[in-house]
Design a binder for these strands. Structure first.
Lengths: 330, 330
DNA sequence: CTGAAAGCGCTTACAG
DNA sequence: CTGAAAGCGCTTACAG
């Protein structure tokens, strides 16, 4: 910095002001400094700036799994809102490894971030609370009770209801559900399915096949359904991957979708959009969840709110080619 | 730090040594310090440590697009090798936006990273070289001429050859290629296709349909092929998404894969593994490319090498259900 | 293991 | 806009 000041023929203070984009600096001085810096290859040392200014205006963003495009979409909203608000971000991915998640959170705290955005982390509640301490945080896709952590959730219950209402409106009454087991949101989807079936007076047709969020579970689930006495006319799958697995089993059995079977997924993942699959599904407002999470965090960091809140985002139905009126009847 | 020293009844120097995991500290002192730190909620300030020690042992990792699981796999290798070598990482994603890429690279440099790992960045060569300056770097999936940047590429040419050899070995002779246009590696795949067809004496059957790396391009390409006079018996698609698009067009035309048509993709993306698609494809050693990139960077950073090198990774054929002997013949 | 000192590269506040 | 000073929270080197 000293060297740049000398080369530009100004004081060190002035160079400092230039890099703080201070309006007190004349355009001419600014140009002189910038030219000298470019010539000398000077860049202000960010660590020194943060140490001296005692502020980072940075958030740490932890992704559960970089392989899952689901989190990429949430991250879009997170990144856009962070940029828009003039903050910086530090990011990391645990990649389904809670030890690594803990390390990233520690690193973020060592770097004195102003807050933490955590997308469906795997670390157990107690450990997470202990690690985060009193740093402001926001959790997306997971609930927790803490005074300094807000939550943004998706309404799985109402998503399931959208799926069942759609199938019923097409004329289906025998609708089975292949569940997502212990997966995130799976319980809410089962409950929404049960409630929706009951609300349509279809409690006798309730049929839940246990599964998990994998293609294989969908295939096994559909095979199981095809072997039942009273084969349903429609399947509501816990997510798109499960739906794709179910569709593969149906195709193998010589059944056509949607002629012989209607299938609804959940997530509106990339595969749902493929022409070969063309899956009717439930879409969650992912980017909006991410943006909302950052908004909540900023409210807190800037002292506008101290009490924790939970936001619940509403999903929407996306109709494609995997659902139609039933042709079979029980 | 002062407070922790007092609370633990030791000197500031000792506390510093504890956090440097110095072997000179007795187990007892270490415990005392750790207990005091935990009680006071003390964490060493990473910015101060880096500033004082004048070392970061950190690499900046820039992803082209977090939505593409392709880069997630490369990142796996990058992250594993960085951890294994005792370095830290700072990551960022440009999300197909070269302005944002430039900002992340700048941020990494402001944080004084020891080197840069860039996964298929979009920034033009000149701008990239100017930005990176003399910082050691490594480029994955893209070539560049620079004294301080190494490259790790995939052999698209030989991948295309694997695809054509496989189809020829099944008995196909009329094999068309739907190209990837300006996409990364697309040119090499076209060239590999042309060379392989020639090497099998099939130059008269060469047929390249221009496309891009999208499903729609695959659909359009296949429709175009079905309208030609001499319809081929097999398609080599520039990537898996293109192959999926082509398969959708074939299904729409009432054609069965692999009975009426064999299809080979490229990438071995998640969709290639779906039961409904079951695509024979070319797999690139993505995680290995990432790990190799970090190895090259460390060689450079630790002064073991100063001249730039380029590594070319070899792909492999993955056979699934989309290829079979031809039943039609021209 | 302690204690005092210097320094990392900045920001901040202030008198001029 | 300058210049001198203090300080951010550490590491480093050293005498004891």
């Amino acid at each position: 910095m000293e060297d740049v000041a000398k080369a530009a023929g100004v004081s060190r203070s002035l160079v400092s002001l230039v890099y703080q984009s201070s309006p007190k600096v004349s355009a001419q001085s600014r140009r002189q400094v910038e030219r000298a810096a470019a010539r000398l290859g000077y860049r202000p040392n960010e660590m020194a700036r943060r140490l001296a200014s005692r502020t980072t205006r940075t958030f740490g963003v932890l992704l559960n799994d970089i392989h899952n495009p689901f989190f990429a979409e949430v991250h879009d909203g997170v990144q856009a809102m962070i940029e828009e608000s003039g903050y910086k971000l530090l990011m990391g991915t645990g990649d389904r490894n809670s030890r690594r998640e803990a390390e990233f959170i520690s690193t973020f705290l060592d770097h004195r971030v102003d807050g933490l955005v955590m997308l469906s982390p795997r670390i157990p509640d107690a450990e997470l609370l202990n690690l985060v301490g009193s740093t402001p945080g926001v959790l997306v896709g997971r609930a927790i009770r803490s005074n300094n952590i807000d939550c943004v959730l998706n309404n799985d219950d109402s998503g399931a209801k959208l799926a069942i209402d759609h199938l019923v409106s097409l004329g289906h009454s025998s609708i089975a559900h292949i569940s997502g087991g212990n997966g995130a949101g799976a319980k809410g989807r089962v409950e929404g399915y049960l409630a929706a079936m009951r609300s349509h007076g279809l409690e006798k047709n309730i049929l839940v096949v246990p599964g998990e969020y994998t293609e294989e579970a969908g295939t096994r689930g559909a095979e199981q359904l095809l072997a039942t006495k009273q084969v349903p006319t429609a399947i509501f799958a816990a997510n798109d991957l499960v739906a794709a697995g179910a569709m593969a089993a149906l195709a193998k059995a010589g059944l056509k979708v949607p002629r012989d079977f209607s299938v609804v997924g959940y997530d509106n993942a990339a595969l749902a959009r493929l022409g070969l699959i063309s899956l009717t599904t439930i879409e969650q407002p992912l980017a909006e969840s991410g943006a909302d999470a950052v908004r909540l965090l900023i409210e807190r960091v800037e002292g506008e709110r101290t009490r924790p809140v939970t936001h619940i985002m509403e999903p929407a139905l996306v109709i494609r080619g995997s659902t139609a009126r039933p042709t079979r009847h029980r």
